[in-house]
Design a protein around this nucleic acid. Structure first.
Lengths: 191, 191
DNA sequence: GTCTATAAGTGGATAGAC
DNA sequence: GTCTATCCACTTATAGAC
């Protein structure tokens, strides 16, 4: 009923955000995709920003659920690689919302959304633990500040290289992910 | 006179595109920054897309001019590294237009703009030659298709990691560029 | 809660005088 | 070529009936 409908709304928002981004997505489209009137949407979510925030909260929840499935016994660098693989798979599946990274009304709305911020903090803490562990065991470059590693991993979720390579039409999704994983962890230089 | 004014227009467009992106930039803002009426703008450029295309053509010209300054005697991998460094410096200086990479009216306008396409092809050809040379001399990972390397380098021009690290406020522009250069060419894994 | 209808505002583009 | 003034399509958001 109520929850199911809001779930359908968030699904539509998530898909449209992945396809066109926040600015190009219109509330009319969301309502049309859900099959309800626009005014009804606003009974569930008070603004377009809140719609996008709800989609981001869901993605963050999906990420945390994925982290829960990982085998805690495996080496930390492997965990990080699996996380990067997952984010790229989500993006290639057309399920990763694409948001403006700066100077937007959406940024302010997101930073004041407790559910989103809490989720982001949780994910960052878990990744941060693996990063420091991987640097301690010598598998990750210790010259890089952990924050730079964290951002580099987050950036895989919106890497335009995935879309470019997909557009080239020469490689499967798995090949694309493997190539970008290679550039991310092994670098362009020959090992 | 005419040329100087159009140059001022393109400069304003370039700055606003770097600051806010194509969709968030309004033609009113461009006119206000140049100090002329909006209708006058449209005497010089027939559409907002053409404004952005002109900015992209200028960036492409700047890139080609930079390529001309490189010492052709140096190893190809060094050339590629210098190109990546340059694109990141331009971005950090707030002079790199940020455009939607897909599904936009702008994409169509750009692909039919001969000056832009020619410039892009020229740059791609020059980078492509260095890429294959670097793979031949063993300095660049030969398992990666050259197109994947090319896109990876292009992506440095719009890498959100630069802005994230700048926002952290802990590092200088030079440090940020060196870190991202390291992750790009050497990878996250320990060497 | 859902709907139709519309308010309120914005942005790209243009008409027409000078 | 530049200006003022305006048009028109579109978008977010809301009012009010059911």
């Amino acid at each position: 009923m109520h929850i199911a409908r809001e779930d359908a709304i968030v699904s539509a928002v998530n898909r449209l955000l992945a396809e066109k981004g926040f600015e190009a997505m219109t509330v009319d489209e969301v309502a049309a995709e859900v099959g309800i009137a626009k005014a009804s949407l606003y009974k569930h979510f008070p603004s377009k920003e809140d719609l996008a925030a709800a989609a981001m909260v869901r993605v963050m929840d999906r990420a945390r659920a994925f982290l829960d499935t990982l085998d805690a016994q495996r080496p930390p660098l492997e965990q990080l690689r699996e996380v990067a693989r997952w984010t790229m798979a989500v993006q290639l599946a057309g399920e990763m919302p694409s948001l403006p990274s700066e100077n937007s009304s959406l940024r302010a709305a997101l930073t004041t959304n407790k559910a989103y911020v809490d989720g982001l903090m949780d994910v960052s803490d878990r990744l941060g633990a693996w990063i420091t562990a991987a640097q301690a065991d010598g598998s990750l470059n210790s010259a890089l500040p952990p924050i730079a590693v964290l951002y580099t991993l987050y950036a895989r979720a919106c890497d335009p290289v995935l879309g470019f390579l997909k557009g080239a039409g020469l490689y499967s999704n798995e090949q694309i992910i493997d190539m970008v994983l290679s550039t991310c962890f092994d670098g362009l230089r020959k090992r």
